[in-house]
Design a protein around this nucleic acid. Structure first.
Lengths: 115, 115
DNA sequence: CGGATAGATAAGTCAACACTTAACTATGTG
DNA sequence: CACATAGTTAAGTGTTGACTTATCTATCCG
């Protein structure tokens, strides 16, 4: 299953790194420049740029350059794609538990009828 | 920021692989044995076991062995931890947009009052 | 223009990841 | 017991990821 990168792959992969999540946390409070995003980290500029590229490739952020400053912002739509996938799995699992419970209750009622 | 693995790191990292997501999708419809989970893949057994280990280490699944069969199930709690993080980021961003809108509206009202 | 500031590109390193094959350990079953 | 089934462990390989330093290109400011 190597090298078949879907949107979800890129999204979750991007979210897997604490530095990138920290950048998203910062961006969720409002847009920021590259150097502003870099400030909290003891990390070289190229490293920061690579993280930002990962976020942007995954669609989690957007950016535009004005003069020599690149401003980044969060893209909430990509967040909800990931969120939706998680919600779907949970819903499916809980729906299954509900069906199971209903089935067991039904069995119990039949037993009572027959006993 | 190397090698400091928090729960979220492990969770999102686990979710980043399509094979592991496929396994979770299967598991969200109910528990399954290792070989049942392996069936859809053209992948060696050890590879499947490694994926399952990643899922279990991240807390996304649970398993217990009975006889020679290991049965895996999903752990919805870990799913919601990830979901909550995403929800928090979105909420923060949207809250910010709301504040911004309120501020702009207020400015506009003042302008009207002064015009 | 000259120098600081903001960001970008290239190239290299080391560790982690996603596999593989080979060999091994239970646990059922005729 | 013999043989199949279900899973496990070990060890190795090629690829990707997370950095680094060095160098380079705008852009703004005096």
């Amino acid at each position: 299953m190597i090298n078949q990168s879907t949107t979800l792959d890129l999204t979750f992969q991007a979210l897997a790194d604490p530095a990138r999540r920290a950048m998203l946390e910062r961006l969720s409070t409002g847009p920021a420049s590259v150097s502003e995003l870099a400030r909290p980290f003891s990390m070289s500029m190229p490293a920061v740029l690579q993280h930002l590229a990962v976020l942007e490739t995954a669609g989690l952020t957007l950016s535009h350059k004005s003069g020599r400053v690149r401003t980044c912002e969060i893209n909430p739509q990509a967040l909800s794609t990931a969120q939706d996938w998680l919600a779907a799995r949970r819903a499916e699992w809980e729906h299954r538990l509900d069906r199971l419970e209903a089935y067991l209750t039904e069995l119990q009622n039949k037993d009572q009828g027959n006993g």
